[in-house]
């Protein structure tokens, strides 16, 4: 409870930080250059786990990430996960897939550190990701019926393969709640780089991306440990 309180307060504080920074310009000049690598944080996304529990939309996803801290300014990140879908539409068309996905990217800490002060571990991050996944999917029971000529055809598309690449623009907050334990959230827009042509069989769900529209959004809430 206390840690959540601390987390929320720190987030509120972040909003005023730019003003505070302006007032404290003339603090001591002692240069403490941050080290190049200040530890690796291993994080698990809880938002997707919670979503899997409450979702009845037929999709699931889990992911974890490793983020490095370079000079308290650049935060390269690798995110890997597993996602899938098992859905039947109102017209009884079935869609099934699962697959691994990965994203690489970098976040930038937008908070100016006080010069000379001990660097805080509360971060306001903005960054980009490049996502990639390659997976197989099945679409079953696609019915083409003809009322006039009285024919019905059922199509099944099995083991269709797809490779999707997308980019994401990410903003988020990451706070050290207890020593070396981090919590944070991100919100992101996702934009698909390779779309299917009209009329082509295409996957309804893309692991790591979501439901296959040209752009979508994502939310993550992660908990992590810094080594």
């Amino acid at each position: 409870m206390r840690s959540i309180l601390r987390y929320i307060i720190s987030f509120v504080l972040l909003l005023n930080v730019s003003n505070v920074g302006a007032q404290e310009k003339k603090t001591e000049e002692k240069e403490t250059k941050p080290a190049l690598l200040n530890g690796l944080t291993v994080q698990v996304d809880i938002a997707s786990l919670a979503y899997n529990l409450i979702s009845n939309g037929g999709t699931y996803s889990s992911e974890a990430s490793v983020q490095a801290d370079l000079k308290h300014k650049y935060f390269p990140i690798v995110e890997v996960g597993f996602g899938g879908a098992d859905k039947v539409t109102a017209d009884n068309i079935g869609f099934k897939t699962n697959g691994l996905f990965g994203r690489v990217g970098v976040d930038l800490n937008l908070l100016k550190q006080k010069e000379g002060a001990k660097p805080t571990n509360n971060l306001f991050l903005a960054g980009v990701r490049l996502g990639f996944t390659s997976f197989l999917y099945d679409i079953s029971n696609v019915t083409i019926s003809d009322n006039y000529w009285g024919t019905t055809e059922v199509l099944n598309y099995e083991k269709q393969s797809a490779t999707k690449i997308w980019y994401e623009i990410v903003a988020g907050v990451k706070v050290e709640v207890i020593k070396n334990i981090y919590m944070g959230w991100t919100i992101r827009t996702k934009n698909l780089l390779n779309k299917n042509a009209e009329g082509e069989v295409s996957p309804w769900y893309v692991p790591g991306f979501g439901v296959n529209t040209s752009s979508t959004w994502g939310f993550s809430y992660s908990i992590g440990y810094r080594f």
């Binding site: 017209d91 019915t143 083409i144 009209e198």
Partner: peptide, 10 residues
């Protein structure tokens, strides 16, 4: 066969 989407079928 012209696939539209999962919602629309083919």
């Amino acid at each position: 066969d012209y696939y539209l989407s999962l919602e629309c079928g083919c």
